[in-house]
Structures are given as C-alpha cells and as structure tokens.
Computed example of a mutant assay.
Amino acid sequence: MKKSEDLLVKILIVFAGLTIGAVVVLTIIAYQIGVDELESPNRIAIISGLLSMFGGIAGAIGAYAIATYQMNKQFKYDKYKEEKQNKETLLHTLKKIELLNKDTIDFVSHFENEFVNPEKDEIEVKLKIREYDLQYIVNKVDKINDSILLDNHNINFLIFSRELNNMYIDIIGFTHIPEKYKLFSLEDLRISVGNRKEIFDSFDTHVKTQIKEIEKELINIIVY
C-alpha cells in the first residue's frame, strides 16, 4: 500500500472513531438534558436528529478530506508526468545530437585519410562529395531545438555547433582558392579539419555521460 493511500485509510479510521464517540457522547448529553423524561417516540426523534446532524457534519468533513486528497494526488501526478515528459524530450534530443556528432567524427576521420596524397584531378570531385556530406550534418544540427537544452547541455552544444559550422565554412571557402594554390593549401585544410576531432571526441564523452544521468533520473521518477 502506498503512503498516500495508507494516510487516507488512517484518516477515515479517525473519522469513524469520532463518529462512534459522538454517538456515545450525544446519547449521554441527551439524557442529561431530560430526554429520558419524554415519551419514547419523541426521545428517539430528538436523539436521531442530533446523530443525523453530527453524521452530516462528519460526512462533509470526510468528503472534504477525500476531495483534498484526490486533488493533491492529481497535482503530484501531473507534476511527475510533466517532469517525466521533459526528461524524455531532453533524452531524445541528446541522443539525436550524439548521433550527429558521431557522424561528424566519422567525417573528420574519413576526410583526413582521403586527402593525404590525393590525385590533383580528383580533389574537386572528392571535396564536393565531402561538402555535401557535411552539409547534411550541418542542416540537421541547425534544426535541433536547443531551447530545451539547459545550462551545460546548451553551452557544450553551442561549442559543438560552432566548430561544425566553422569546419563547413573552411571546406566551402577552399573552393574559392585559385587552382594553382589548392594542392598546397589542401594539407592545411586537412590539418584544420583533423584538429577539431579532439573537440568532437570530448563532446561525445559529455553527451554520453548526460544521457546516462538522465536515464537514471527517469527510472527514479514514479508517476502514480
């Protein structure tokens, strides 16, 4: 039996005890004021009236107590339900961010390996393919509703988003470099992209930790 239900049972027992006690007390009072001197029908009517009056009062108090209990129970239910929904939404968003960050890490690794010693006539085609790949990730990240991210969730996400967009700008900007300098500048671009891997790896660790914490918190949220 839950604590709230146990409390309600105790309250009802107390009301029952009060009612029984009142019956005894009112009977004694009735006889003390001379009800015993009246005829039996009148005596029964007076005592019944007194008991009915007290019963009505006790019933009203009991109904108020039950209604208050139900309202408090509903309030707690709504509160826990809202908290649970907020946590689930945050968890879903963090898992989506985790997946996109993983795609970013894979992109960086692939980019580093692909442009170690590329053929000159393949650079433009390969870069355009990588640009499309990264654009997909950037567009998905930009659609993340970061308004539900709080405190350190939001700060770390902004750092991740900024580095991702800067990397995308670097790759797009490379296409505007004169052809005769592209082959020499490609290594600088490759190094620039690779240097961001540490940031993305750190963010991945942070997101995974937050996901585990929220999953634990969800287990402890009980919706009655």
Rank of each mutant, 00 (worst) to 15 (best):
V223F: 05
E217T: 05
T209R: 11
D121R: 09
G17K: 13
I105Q: 03
A63C: 07
K102C: 02
L100Q: 03
G173Q: 06
I144Q: 02
L38F: 06
I221K: 01
N42R: 13
D6S: 10
N152S: 12
V9K: 15
S202N: 12
V23M: 12
E124H: 11
D188C: 01
H92D: 07
E215Q: 12
I29H: 15
Q210G: 02
A67H: 14
N152D: 15
E5M: 12
I20R: 14
I29M: 15
Q70G: 00
V9P: 13
V14E: 10
E217I: 07
V116E: 15
E37P: 09
I28V: 14
Y64S: 10
K126L: 12
L8C: 06
L189E: 10
S147W: 11
T68L: 04
I144W: 04
I13S: 00
K73Q: 14
E39K: 11
L127V: 08
T175P: 01
H176S: 15
M71V: 13
V108C: 01
E217D: 08
K87W: 10
E37Q: 10
N195H: 08
L158V: 14
G55P: 11
I222A: 05
K126I: 07
I221V: 04
T205G: 00
G56Q: 02
I97P: 02
S202V: 04
Y31A: 12
I148W: 03
I148Q: 00
L189S: 08
M53D: 04
N113K: 15
G21F: 10
Y224A: 00
D78N: 03
K84V: 03
E198M: 06
G21W: 11
V138I: 02
D204G: 04
K81W: 06
E124N: 12
F115A: 01
I171L: 13
S48G: 08
N113G: 05
I221T: 03
L158H: 14
K216S: 09
R190A: 05
K143P: 04
I13G: 04
D133K: 00
G62H: 03
I155E: 11
K143L: 05
E198H: 06
E179A: 06
V35Q: 08
K212T: 08
L38N: 06
E82L: 11
I20S: 15
D103R: 08
D121T: 10
G59E: 00
D103K: 07
I61H: 07
R190I: 05
S202K: 11
A16H: 06
Y181L: 05
V116D: 13
E98T: 02
I11R: 12
Y31D: 09
P178W: 08
V116H: 11
I155W: 08
I199C: 03
V125A: 14
E98F: 04
I191N: 13
T175S: 08
I171R: 08
I44M: 01
I97D: 04
Y168P: 00
Q135Y: 01
N165E: 15
S185R: 09
I29A: 09
L100F: 02
T205M: 08
M1G: 15
E124G: 09
G194K: 15
P118V: 11
H206T: 15
M71S: 09
L7I: 14
T68F: 05
D106R: 13
A58D: 10
Y136N: 01
K197R: 11
S202R: 07
H110G: 07
D188L: 05
I169M: 05
